[in-house]
């Protein structure tokens, strides 16, 4: 009985902590890993003297977005950070965000192409898709055929990789959608892009539900080659000593990691300060050190093994088209692959 009462009391304490409000503070919803979120909050606190509370931290941007929608009538958080710009664009379209353009964009000379043309979200980091392959299996099975290691999207169409490619499913993950969009944008038309999807489909062993599902499968040798987020792959490779090689292909797809102020934010001024802070070199460093992501601000040190951002060749991108065609392109993709 005592234990029950104790536990009840503990629950109350937790609940109170969650509900407690404070004027000089910012409440953050983060679609980022836990470590990055907490370090960002701590650094902001140290830099500004404002309290920063990470009230919600989930790696899945979808869940965070869903959360903001459900509590919209009574917004509890001030900013939502992380997750690619499509989630933010979707929230903006639903009227869940407030416009804000940070003055830091101009003062720091950050490219405006990473900012919302409509002025809602602020891009503060980038992630690019990569190709990864299992080194041993490539050497054992592919190299003897005289085939070079995969370096471009078209290399994945080589019949030698039949049944050996792991990609992900746009129905379940935004990363897969960006991969499809990258093909359409680089090849110049929907038709050419979906033609690529059709050809790739012949080689694909499995479309994973998550964008990074190929990392374990290729590392384990379930398949030879896969597509995933470059930053996540490099990070997992470094942490798990994975036997894979990571390549950023030309014309690769990318996401803009965004941050936005939530409509009716209880602490609007603090929220703006926090967005400004995300564009600082300090925030960029925390983000890239933990998540291997590229800050939009130039001149931030990157972890070892991460190629310089300038070395990447991003596909020509049409943010509007990418946001406008989500349902149509997902549907088309499903028709072609039958998945």
């Amino acid at each position: 009985m005592k234990r029950i009462l104790f536990a009840m009391a503990a629950m109350l304490v937790v609940a109170t902590a969650v509900f407690a409000q404070d004027a000089k503070k910012v409440v953050i919803y983060a679609a980022l890993d836990e470590k990055t979120s907490n370090e960002l909050a701590a650094a902001f606190q140290a830099a500004t003297g404002y309290t920063a509370e990470v009230a919600l931290q989930m790696e899945q941007a979808g869940t965070v977005a869903g959360r903001i929608k459900t509590e919209a009538p009574m917004a509890r958080a001030d900013v939502v950070i992380g997750g690619n710009s499509n989630f933010h664009a979707d929230l903006a379209a639903g009227g869940y965000l407030e416009k804000y353009t940070s003055p830091v964009v101009k003062t720091a000379g950050i490219s405006p192409k990473f900012m919302d043309p409509d002025g809602y979200w602020t891009g503060w980091y980038l992630g690019a898709l990569c190709i990864l392959y299992n080194e041993k299996r490539y050497n054992d099975e592919i190299k003897p055929k005289g085939i070079q290691p995969p370096a471009t999207w078209d290399d994945l169409l080589n019949p030698a990789y039949k049944g050996q490619v792991i990609a992900s499913n746009p129905a379940t993950t935004g990363g897969a959608y960006l991969m499809v969009a990258a093909q359409i944008f680089r090849l110049g038309s929907e038709q050419a892009g979906f033609d690529y999807v059709r050809k790739l489909n012949d080689n694909v062993a499995q479309y994973t539900a998550g964008a990074n599902g190929s990392i374990p499968l290729v590392s384990q040798g379930e398949a030879i080659v896969g597509v995933a987020w470059g930053h996540d792959t490099l990070k997992q490779k470094a942490q798990g000593n994975l036997p894979i090689v990571v390549v950023f292909p030309k014309d690769t797809g990318f996401e803009i990691g965004a941050a936005s102020i939530i409509k009716n934010a209880p602490h609007r001024e603090a929220a703006q300060k926090f967005i400004d802070f995300l564009l600082s070199p300090e925030a960029g460093k925390i983000n890239s050190a933990n998540g291997y992501r590229y800050p939009v601000r130039k001149g931030v040190a990157l972890p070892a093994g991460v190629p310089a951002f300038e070395s990447l060749a991003l596909a020509p991108w049409d943010l509007k088209a990418a946001a406008a065609n989500v349902d149509a392109w997902k549907k088309r993709w499903a028709e072609i692959t039958g998945k």
């Binding site: 899945q60 941007a61 979808g62 869940t63 965070v64 977005a65 869903g66 929608k69 459900t70 989630f87 979707d90 129905a171 379940t172 993950t173 935004g174 499995q206 479309y207 994973t208 539900a209 998550g210 998945k339």
Partner: peptide, 20 residues
Amino acid sequence: GNFSVLATEAWLRVEGWGDV
């Protein structure tokens, strides 16, 4: 793997697209 069932699809709707 590719053999998806209702329980996992429900989760993936939320995880991937925030579609509660």
